[in-house]
Amino acid sequence: MATKNKVGRPSKLAESIEKAKEYLMGGFEAVGDVVPSVAGLACYLGISRSTAQEYAKDNVEFSGTLEAIKTLQENKLINKGLIGDFNATITKLMLANHGYSDKAEIDNKSSDGSMTPKPTTIQLLPVEPKHE
C-alpha cells in the first residue's frame, strides 16, 4: 500500500504554527504590540481568539507556542511594571490573569483599642447534686 503525498497549499493550521512562532519571537513588537497576547496573535494570524484556542486543542506545537506567548507576556508585565514602564493599574489587572493578586488582610481593630476582639473564656463550675 502506497502512502499518499500531500500536494498543494499547506493547511491554515500549518501556516498559523509558523506565523505564531514569528509572533512570539518578536513579530508582536513589529506590529506594535507592547506585550504578546492571544488576542494579538489572533489579529496577527487573521483568525478569531476562539479559533486560536481550537488550534491549541488540536495541535501540541501550536498549544506550546500559545503557552510561550502567555509566559512571555507575564515576564514582560512583571519586569516593565517593576521599572515603571507600564501603567500600574493595567499591569495589575493583566497579571491577575496569570494568578497574581493583591490580597489585603483586614484587622478589625480600632485605633483606640475599643474594638479589639477579646477572647471568650468559659468557666466551668462544679455542680452540686440536688437532694430531694
Rank of each mutant, 00 (worst) to 15 (best):
Y44D: 03
L45M: 08
G64R: 06
M94L: 12
L124T: 10
E105F: 10
T116E: 10
A96D: 03
H131R: 14
K92N: 12
Q123I: 12
G27A: 05
T65S: 01
V7N: 04
E15Q: 10
T120H: 11
S114C: 06
A52M: 02
K118R: 13
L45W: 04
N97T: 10
E22I: 01
R9I: 14
E132M: 13
G99Q: 11
L72I: 11
P36W: 00
E29T: 05
E54T: 09
A56N: 03
I83F: 03
K70Y: 01
Y23I: 03
G32M: 01
K118E: 11
L66D: 02
G64K: 08
V127P: 06
F86G: 03
S11P: 06
M1I: 10
N87R: 08
I78N: 12
A30D: 09
L72T: 09
G113I: 11
T91P: 00
V127G: 05
G32W: 01
G40K: 00
A14M: 08
E105Q: 09
T121K: 13
T3L: 12
M1V: 10
N59F: 04
L24K: 03
M1A: 15
T120Q: 09
E61C: 01
N97A: 11
A96L: 08
M94G: 01
T91Q: 05
K19G: 00
N97L: 14
I69C: 02
K4D: 13
K21M: 14
K19D: 06
V34T: 10
G113R: 09
R49M: 03
P10T: 05
N59R: 01
M115E: 12
I106K: 12
Y23W: 01
I78C: 06
T91H: 04
K57G: 08
M1C: 11
V127C: 13
A52F: 00
E15N: 09
D102Q: 15
S63D: 11
N108I: 11
L24D: 04
M1K: 14
N108G: 04
A14N: 01
T65R: 00
G40T: 06
A88M: 15
V34D: 07
V31A: 11
L66A: 06
D107W: 03
Q53E: 13
G27Q: 04
P117F: 02
K109Y: 15
V7R: 02
E61N: 03
E132Y: 14
K80F: 08
M25E: 15
V34F: 04
S48G: 02
N108K: 13
P126K: 14
M94R: 14
V127T: 14
A68Y: 00
K118F: 04
H98V: 13
K19P: 09
S63A: 12
V60N: 04
S63E: 05
L77K: 12
H131C: 09
K130Q: 12
I122F: 02
G8Q: 01
E67F: 08
D107P: 01
Q123M: 11
K6S: 15
K70W: 03
G46Q: 07
S101G: 06
G84Q: 03
K92E: 08
H98T: 13
K92I: 15
E105P: 06
V38W: 05
I122K: 05
K109E: 12
A14H: 08
L24Q: 03
S16Y: 02
